[in-house]
Each structure stands twice: as structure tokens, then as C-alpha cells.
């Protein structure tokens, strides 16, 4: 006999035969993507152009990850090459700092451009299951 544990969202009948994966909180025959670790870094000073902050890890492979950066104006931007969070309202290119996170089998790298004066950032890193 196969055991399963399925939990539907509020108001959804778990015995309804027409349910989709989006009707469930948990369905054991679908992998629930897991966050293995979360790390926060505070008050990192970007003093060179670019500045690379390196965080070693011991996974032994390049893990799946995601990262967010908080800039001095308090805005938090998702990671991405050549993002320009200072100017996302005016759409002016290349006048603000960018945030490019990368990973390999030994380290996480947080690369930030410094188009003007030094500035400080906070970074939040999420490490997901599975190797890239």
C-alpha cells in the first residue's frame, strides 16, 4: 500500500478529483523546493569599482541560490546583472550601482559597481537544494 499525505489550501476538498498542484499546500509526490540556508551580511562597504565580496562555502559543488541587496536609500533589489536600483524609477542607465551575484564550487561572489562615492549595502543570500 502506498502512503501519501496531501494537504490542500483552505476551502479545497482534498478528495476532489479535479485538483491541480496549485490547490495544495503540500503534496508528497511533488518535490517541495527546500531552502538549505540563509545568510545575511550587513554594512558591506563598496569601495572599489567593482567590489567583489567573497563568501566561501563547503558544499563541494555550485549550489542553486538567490540573493537580494539593500542599497543606502533603503531599497532592496533582486539580484541581476547590470541592475540599476537607484534609477529604476527614471530608467536612467548606468548611473547607479549594480549587483551581480555568482557562485562556483567554492564561493559565492557578490559583485557591486561603484559609479560614484563609496556606499554600504546589506545582502541576503538564500541557498537552495541541489547543484547547479
Amino acid at each position: 500500500m502506498t502512503f501519501t499525505l496531501d494537504l490542500t489550501k483552505k476551502g479545497v476538498d482534498v478528495f476532489d478529483g479535479g485538483l491541480t498542484p496549485n490547490d495544495y499546500l503540500l503534496k508528497l509526490n511533488l518535490n517541495t523546493f527546500k531552502i538549505l540556508a540563509k545568510l545575511n551580511y550587513f554594512d558591506l562597504t563598496v569601495s572599489g569599482n567593482p567590489t567583489t565580496f567573497t563568501q566561501s562555502h563547503s558544499f563541494g559543488y555550485a549550489p542553486n541560490f538567490y540573493a537580494f541587496c539593500r542599497f543606502p536609500d533603503g531599497k532592496v533589489a533582486m539580484a541581476g546583472p547590470l541592475s540599476f536600483p537607484y534609477d529604476r524609477d527614471t530608467r536612467v542607465l548606468f548611473t547607479g550601482p549594480s549587483f551581480t551575484p555568482e557562485v562556483d564550487s567554492s564561493n559565492f561572489y557578490f559583485i557591486l559597481d561603484k559609479p560614484g562615492a563609496n556606499y554600504n549595502v546589506d545582502i541576503a543570500l538564500y541557498v537552495f537544494e541541489v547543484e547547479l
Binding site: A79, P81, L82, V103, D104, L132
Partner: peptide, 16 residues
Amino acid sequence: SGRFQIANGYNMFGDF
């Protein structure tokens, strides 16, 4: 080789 970058959005200047 072995180093990965997030392919985020549709940035015309991005590598991915």
C-alpha cells in the same frame, strides 16, 4: 567554467 550567474529578467546588457 563552473561559475554561474543568475539569469534575471530581460536586461538588454546582461549576459543571460
